[in-house]
């Protein structure tokens, strides 16, 4: 039923809102795909990654450089997928023995290396100045048209959402949760920890890479500042605010990291967003560690239990 509502709303929105807001919703959908990726890794598997914006950046620069090298459109998703699998595994393998600070640091170092590569390959990437991305065109489709970009992001975000919901129902999804809760207990019941963690990293990189690829074509510009440490922290804010381990939470988080900067820009204070973002991360972690969705679920369960007790007492 949830997906039905999603499809109906998605189909109706272009008739209800203007082109600018359609562009904003498109960005929410793109960020939701990437946030779902980090949720798989951090929310479900417990692996804190500060390289997520780099995975997002890999997809974006595949789109940007495909223009330069004339890579056919149909090959580009395959390229993004292949690169995401390789890079996801490359980040995962050295970090398998790590957790906590060490995991965060090594993934951060991967992120730093990515930004360094972009900065130092300036003849290809435009360096710190960034580069423009020509629109994706395929027959009548043109990603620079708000409706076309929206349709592309809507289909991709729907697929990503379905995949993440289904993942929770599979054995792999349950293994991820077990690894997050206790590696020792998971190993004792025969869960392959290494394979589960690598799969989580790869899936996370694929979702972020796909989101980055669409982002580059919709926005039409890429620069390394979008994909640095602070970009990764913003994805983490999205996961924690929405509620880690929850698909709806990732969507709420994406809404936050796209809409709140829009609000600050509209009132003339665009620089306030990172300050608020940092404060939100602290306050949410301290007061509602389950995130918005998790806390609402808990509230709903409590109210349901109270209602049940009253019903039994009355009957």
């Amino acid at each position: 039923m949830g997906f039905g509502i999603f499809i109906v709303i998605t189909a109706l929105l272009p008739f209800v809102i203007g082109q600018y807001y359609l562009y904003v919703v498109t960005q929410v959908m793109i960020y939701a795909i990437a946030t779902l990726g980090l949720d798989v890794l951090y929310g479900r598997t417990g692996q804190l990654s500060l390289a997520h914006a780099s995975f997002f950046g890999i997809g974006a620069y595949v789109a940007a450089l495909s223009n330069t090298f004339g890579v056919p459109v149909v090959l580009q998703p395959v390229l993004v997928l292949g690169l995401a699998v390789i890079v996801g595994a490359l980040v995962a393998i050295p970090t398998l023995r790590l957790s906590g600070l060490r995991l965060a640091l090594v993934t951060l170092l991967f992120g730093e290396l990515f930004v360094w590569l972009i900065d130092h390959a300036s003849n290809l990437t435009g360096g710190s100045q960034g580069m423009t991305v020509q629109p994706l065109t395929l027959g009548p489709f043109d990603s620079s048209e708000p409706l076309d970009g929206y349709a592309l992001a809507a289909i991709a975000s729907l697929l990503a959402t379905v995949m993440c919901v289904q993942l929770g129902k599979t054995q792999y999804g349950r293994r991820m949760l077990a690894v997050r809760d206790s590696e020792l207990a998971s190993a004792s019941v025969g869960i392959p920890i290494v394979r589960t963690k690598i799969a989580a990293f790869i899936l996370s990189a694929i979702l972020a890479g796909a989101a980055g690829w669409i982002y580059a074509y919709v926005v039409g510009f890429v620069s390394p500042t979008t994909f640095d440490l602070f970009g990764s922290v913003n994805f983490l804010v999205a996961v924690i605010l929405g509620g880690s381990g929850r698909v709806l939470g990732a969507w709420c988080g994406a809404l936050y990291i796209v809409l709140v900067p829009e609000v600050f820009s509209s009132i003339g204070y665009p620089n306030l967003f990172p300050i608020v973002g940092g404060a939100v991360m602290i306050v949410v972690a301290m007061t509602i560690p389950r995130g918005l969705v998790g806390s609402l679920e808990k509230l709903g369960e409590t109210l349901w239990a109270v209602r049940g007790r009253r019903g039994r007492a009355g009957g």
Binding site: L50, F230, V233, N234, L236, V237, N271, F273, P274, I275, G277, G278, A279, V280, M281, I282, A285
Partner: peptide, 9 residues
């Protein structure tokens, strides 16, 4: 990490 974002901004 949230504080890092907050103080830097």
């Amino acid at each position: 990490l949230g504080e890092l974002l907050f103080l830097t901004a």
